[in-house]
């Protein structure tokens, strides 16, 4: 079985974002493998072990540094990797087309795993665009996954803790959520071994993607204003609770 995992190189959530110019940011900060994609890699490796005679290929669209994120995926157990290198900040339309082209060149997979969202742009859509481009079924927010010959059975998170049980044919695209599994942290030998695994680098331009009719353009980036006055409510417990109730009633008007 051929399994692809699409991963993204994203700024560490703890890193400070410094805006440069009108719509850029200082990228000399720590970048990581997108946390939701860790669950995708973990599941791909688990399925490979379960099925046997399978290969896991990690694929990313990004700048040359995204190779570090691919190395993380390799250390977690992926067999080889493909980096689609570009200097643009690709939107989901371009990303899904690039992934389709590169994955198509490599040979059509049976399953594609990817995280349900990237923590930088939070677009929630690349897996759906990729599935549409490849004409595959897709389910996202997946918290349970099992294979049954030519079909997959997944549980998807819905509102208020409800779960949708979905049955789909292979090949398909799966958007992984946090509840699916617990990613294992790579051991030192695994990290060393990952350095020797194959990473194929393809220039985005060389894929000759037709210019799409739709796009997303970031016109401006601004820091989110955080101005909260942080007043302390003081006194005995009964008194502070009375003060808090006054705030809920008069200021928030929820009582």
């Amino acid at each position: 079985m051929k399994i692809c995992v699409c991963v993204k190189h994203v700024p560490d959530s703890a890193a400070k974002i410094t805006i440069k110019g009108k719509n850029q940011f200082d990228e000399s900060i720590n970048f990581i493998l997108n946390p939701y994609d860790e669950h995708a890699v973990e599941e791909a490796v688990r399925v490979k072990k379960q099925v046997g005679d399978s290969e896991v290929i990690a694929v990313s669209v990004g700048k040359k540094d995204a190779i570090n994120t691919l190395r993380s995926a390799l250390a977690m157990g992926a067999d080889r990797a493909i980096l689609i290198k570009t200097n643009i900040r690709a939107d989901s339309v371009i990303t899904s087309r690039a992934l389709k082209a590169a994955i198509g060149q490599d040979g059509k997979p049976d399953i594609i795993f990817t995280g349900k969202a990237s923590i930088d742009n939070e677009g929630f859509q690349t897996m759906y665009r990729l599935a549409a481009a490849l004409n595959m079924s897709v389910a996202s927010n997946v918290i349970a996954f099992s294979l049954d010959q030519e079909r997959v059975l997944v549980e998807c998170e819905m509102e208020a803790d409800a779960r949708g049980i979905i049955d789909m044919p292979l090949p398909c695209v799966i958007g992984t959520s946090k509840g699916l599994n617990k990613p294992s942290y790579p051991t030192l030998p695994a990290i060393m071994k990952a350095k020797k695994k194959e990473v194929k680098i393809i220039d985005l331009e060389s894929l000759a993607i037709e210019k799409p009719m739709s796009s997303i353009e970031i016109l401006e980036l601004k820091p989110a204003v955080e101005e909260r006055s942080s007043k302390e409510l003081k006194g005995q417990p009964e008194e502070v609770v009375m003060q808090l109730i006054r705030v809920l009633r008069e200021e928030a008007k929820v009582l």
């Binding site: 796009s215 997303i216 820091p223 989110a224």
Partner: peptide, 11 residues
Amino acid sequence: KTIATIKANGL
């Protein structure tokens, strides 16, 4: 951490 102003282009 940031607010982005985004333009959507399409049909």
